[in-house]
Amino acid sequence: MGLLDRLNTRKTESHPAARAAEAAPIRPTKALKKFLTSLTQRESPVLLDLGPVVGSNVSFFGEQLGCKIFVEDIYAEIERHAKQDALEKLPEALAKRFAQADGAVDGILCWDIVDYLSRPAASALATQLMRVLRPDGALLAFFGTVAPPPVPRYTKYIVADESSLVYRDADATRGRQPVLVNRDILKLFDGLRVADSFLLQHNVREILFRKPAA
């Protein structure tokens, strides 16, 4: 290793900003902008966020876009069931969880929740999401395209701007499940159509689903 390489390594290792960036990298997103466009076409859009609550996301969607936001932290539900060793009960819990009326939601931020679910749980969740989404509403979901890492982690997605997200990892009891192929994804959300799909360089497929207009 040359002197410059060593200096570069030391610089990267020691700099707190570099460490923070490594722990919470900023990644591009292509589908978020389209999702936002679909939301802003409504007067006071209703948004369902399935990820852990993120204060800045609430401000972004609530203050800037005027959304009414429902926060349903499904990661926490998965964690709770995993810690209680009761994952077989998760499909039933997900089927009962959403109190929203049929077609009451304009947009759903599903993030990568489906990657953490068994097939029955994913199916129960997808059924509920398709139920609460209004016709022409949008659902944004991410799917990993490579084998999950050995150490279970989940990701908090923080909106940096309409074209980028901060990926903040945190410890998890249950990790990602085997990668879903496109056919499985389409089957899972068979009541929706794929409006856009982007395969990003960091091995994530972003899919924007739309519910067909009634």
Binding site: T40, E43, G55, V58, S59, E63, K68, I69, V71, E72
Partner: peptide, 21 residues
């Protein structure tokens, strides 16, 4: 206005009463 810190727990809805956009 709603501020939610990193380690906070929240389940429910947030309505910031911003009518029209």
């Amino acid at each position: 206005r709603v501020a939610i810190a990193e380690g906070a727990h929240f389940r429910g809805s947030v309505d910031m009463q911003r009518k029209g956009a």
